[in-house]
Design a protein around this nucleic acid. Sequence first.
DNA 1: AGTATATATAAGTTCTAGTTATACTTACCC
DNA 2: GGGTAAGTATAACTAGAACTTATATATACT
Lengths: 313, 313
Amino acid sequence: MSERSQHLPFDLRSLEIFLAVCEAGTMAAAASALDMTQPAVSLSIAEIERKTGSLLFDRRVRPLALTLAGGLMRQRASALLAEARQIGPLLRETKRGRVPSIRVGVVDSLSRALISPLTKFLASRAGEVSVLSGLTATHAGELLTRRLDVFLGVDDLEELPGLERWELMREPYVLLLPRHAGAIQSLSDLKKLSKSLPLIRFSARSQTGLEVERHIRRLGLDIPRTFEFDSPYGVSALVAAGEGFAITTPLCVYEAQVSSKRIILSKLPGPQISRKLSMVARHRELGQIPRDLAEVARTALRATAIDGLKIGL
Amino acid sequence: MSERSQHLPFDLRSLEIFLAVCEAGTMAAAASALDMTQPAVSLSIAEIERKTGSLLFDRRVRPLALTLAGGLMRQRASALLAEARQIGPLLRETKRGRVPSIRVGVVDSLSRALISPLTKFLASRAGEVSVLSGLTATHAGELLTRRLDVFLGVDDLEELPGLERWELMREPYVLLLPRHAGAIQSLSDLKKLSKSLPLIRFSARSQTGLEVERHIRRLGLDIPRTFEFDSPYGVSALVAAGEGFAITTPLCVYEAQVSSKRIILSKLPGPQISRKLSMVARHRELGQIPRDLAEVARTALRATAIDGLKIGL
DNA sequence: AGTATATATAAGTTCTAGTTATACTTACCC
DNA sequence: GGGTAAGTATAACTAGAACTTATATATACT
């Protein structure tokens, strides 16, 4: 009961009545427009005034004049009702399996491979489609704060509850070398290479960068930090320019679209590592859409990976 | 009764309950958070679902999962409630004679004279102040569609009901000539002038332009249409450049701020005409504010008109 | 001032949102 | 797989909000 006091000083019905009075100019006219009696309208207005503690109309004049507070209430109330009235029809849309708007985050290294097929699919399931590129870590935060509905990236946020996850594919980390570099067969070849050419790195802000770094330490390589990039294009472009070599993945290379004449992909010597690409959405909020979306993404990634092979792995 | 059917399928209270369930994950938990019983929550949710015709939760799983429609409802409902909760506090602001936001239109030719004093005054009466410049005709439309609260211009919209009007001042139309032109004493001097120099006009979209045009016809002058401008600056600048002469007003000239070395203001020969500057607001919606605002505007215009005289009238 | 038109108040009625009590589901655990 | 704990739905009831009719009071117009 004590809770009730902090409640809203009006409900949508009373706002409808208030607006009807604003339009009609008198309570009596509003009452007949709303098909109710004049005292009901009078009481409803009086109730809002009592609960808000503000007079909305100046009763000393006829037709009624809005007070300062009343004018403000009119602006706000009409906006509020307009939005409220949209909701019902929007809900009905979802019954055809369509959602009014959907926002998807795609990690930079997949955007070239996925943006077009995802958008095409989503257009059939949503009225408004936003596809945002960026880092997985950023997207994870945005998913949790509801600025994104789904993201596709390299972290499945295993530790967080309330999410649904789909594995899209795994891809191996590989060596990306300038065409002129010799073949790298063994770990000692790699160590030698790292003396003559710098390692072009993914920044530690990216999940991929962190994994590469961890692996380098595991291999016992101690390579100074010279170049680092947030984006797959930066890494591949520098390798293509002969400025260094990189540890990356086929899809990252595909993403960058650098000329395949200037680069070679080769197997990483020593223990193999791979990265897992996942899709993450809030638990059961989008019905069938995530499941279908994951399938579309898998198909697109498989197709791209096959193309990616042509680069020369 | 038949009316009731087209009503909104929820009210603000039921949205609060719905959101509490979304956050709590179960109806029972939401009920205790809201300090009510579980069946009440269950019934409230069921009622929204019945009225919207959309299932919001998937009951076959626990904790409850949002359906497609439920996810959408969650987004919309939380936005709607956030706005609704702002209204109460905003209304309270108005009790100190302050209004949360006010939007004022000022006709271009007064903006230099008025913008600073009006803004200063409004800052004491509103939390958010917008002052927009433009043509009176545009502002009139915006006033009626509630995108403006007040405007100051050259039309008092006499024919429209539901508005309050304040006269700010009258100012005479005058001749604006390049410094090198000879004195114009009589109508025949003016006719002669119009053979050698073009008339720089206000566009017919502006109220001032229409009045000037009407007066020219009344004087029997037939002057070809060469230059026309929406803004006072355009007109004055061309006169200052020696490209023509104009029929304008002191405040329009002041507005343009062209060098007084290049221009002369002189009395219009023949019958005198003047323009009336008015302020218009929707009837009794802003309390005392319009009355005070009009006084501020009058003071500012008088001060400017005296300065304006120094230009050389 | 008198009349017509609005608004406020009073008293009674209906209907809704809440209650308690209980039956039914789902999830989980041995 | 059956038993148990936790959650949800349904039924029957109640308090109070939202309306109603009836009537008193205030404002505007002539």
